[in-house]
Amino acid sequence: MKSQRIAVAGGTGGIGQHVVDGLLEVKEKYSLHIIVLSRSASADLSFAGSSAPVIAVDYSDSTSIEKVLRENQIDTVLSTLSSHDPETFMTIQSNLLTAALNVPSVHRFSPSEYTHDSEALAESIPFLSTKVAIYEPLRKVKAERGSSFEFTSFQTGAFMNYFALGNPKPDGAKALGHLAPFPFVLDLKNRKADIPGDGQRRMVFTAAEDAGKFIAAVTQLDKWEERSIMKSDWLTFNEIVDMAKDLVGPIDVQYNTLEDITARIGGSPPSMANLYLFIYQAIIKGDYEQKRPFNVNDSVDVKPISMKEFLTKWWA
């Protein structure tokens, strides 16, 4: 039950565009039909000599989405939707799923995950609770439809691209790829590290470009597992700092206890501005511990970039 006709919702920027890039890279190889759903129409997206049309839909109206999915005989819907407003995000992703389930040709759906495991992190990171809501209806549909319907959550860990933020090279801005800037732990431009805990916990990191390639490869698997877990590398912050020192010189390292982070949050409610601090808390408490195997790495032929290779590329 491989994917052939794929719709990427929210694929005009962020991790969504990396997913589109990954699909376009193998479009000819697998004879894929790819469309990108967006709130507004724009020029086709092109990558690696292939392109995909961007089609405007109204995410507040599931029938608008359903019409496009039907017209294109889509069999796989990949959600990369995002919104700073929790209610908006849950509503538009729910509408996307409703539309997909009403189209007979759709047999695969992937919710917008692209983190460690939102179900494991939701208690520590309230913002991620918005991602959890979709899993109950997905599991219900899976139970009802059996082998005729599959879903998977793509779990990437943290994007290593953020460690190149502020890169001074002429093409340094390209290090982020399509991702928006997100200051996280390392500020190598200013040779600083703001580390949660003692820096000894291992973390999963994936380059956004690798994530796109991994996800494209997973669409060509005959069977999907409920979780698709991938990595470019898996190491501690202390190991990363040691690598970075060899490239940029001495780094001012600040270690933070759970009490330190709690004090920095203060009475502020969760928001995008302090999201990283809630992530720090979860890391210190061990919520980011990788307990499941990297089933994507074990199942597809993608050679990811290592952290050392990534840092060397942008900071050497």
Rank of each mutant, 00 (worst) to 15 (best):
S3K: 03
G13K: 15
G14H: 03
G16P: 01
V19Y: 03
V20H: 09
G22T: 03
K29W: 00
L32T: 01
H33G: 14
I35G: 12
I35T: 13
L37C: 05
S40K: 14
A41C: 00
A43Y: 11
A43Q: 15
L45A: 03
F47Y: 14
A48E: 12
G49Y: 00
S50I: 02
I55Y: 01
D58S: 08
S62P: 03
T63N: 11
S64Y: 04
S64M: 07
I65Q: 06
V77G: 05
V77N: 07
L78G: 03
S82A: 14
D85E: 15
E87Y: 07
E87N: 10
F89E: 02
T91V: 09
Q93L: 02
N95H: 10
A100M: 01
L101E: 09
N102I: 00
S105Q: 01
F109M: 09
S110N: 07
S110W: 04
Y114V: 08
E123H: 14
I125V: 14
F127M: 13
K131I: 09
Y135S: 09
L138R: 05
R139F: 02
R139V: 02
K140T: 12
R145D: 05
S147R: 12
E150L: 09
T152E: 00
Q155M: 12
Q155P: 00
G157R: 12
A158E: 11
A158V: 13
Y162G: 06
F163V: 09
F163Y: 10
L165M: 11
K169T: 12
G172M: 02
G172L: 05
L176I: 07
L179Q: 10
L179C: 06
P181Y: 02
P181N: 03
F182K: 01
V185D: 07
D187E: 12
R191A: 14
P196C: 00
D198I: 10
V204L: 10
T206Q: 02
T206Y: 01
A208L: 02
E209P: 00
A216P: 03
A216M: 01
A216F: 01
V218W: 08
W224G: 04
E226W: 00
E226L: 04
M230T: 07
M230S: 04
W234G: 01
T236W: 12
D242H: 11
K245C: 01
D246W: 02
I251Y: 03
V253S: 11
T262G: 08
P270K: 10
A273V: 14
N274A: 10
L275V: 09
I279R: 06
I279G: 04
G286C: 08
G286T: 10
D287L: 13
E289T: 15
E289P: 06
E289W: 07
R292C: 05
N295G: 06
S299M: 13
V302R: 11
S306K: 12
M307L: 15
E309D: 14
K313N: 11
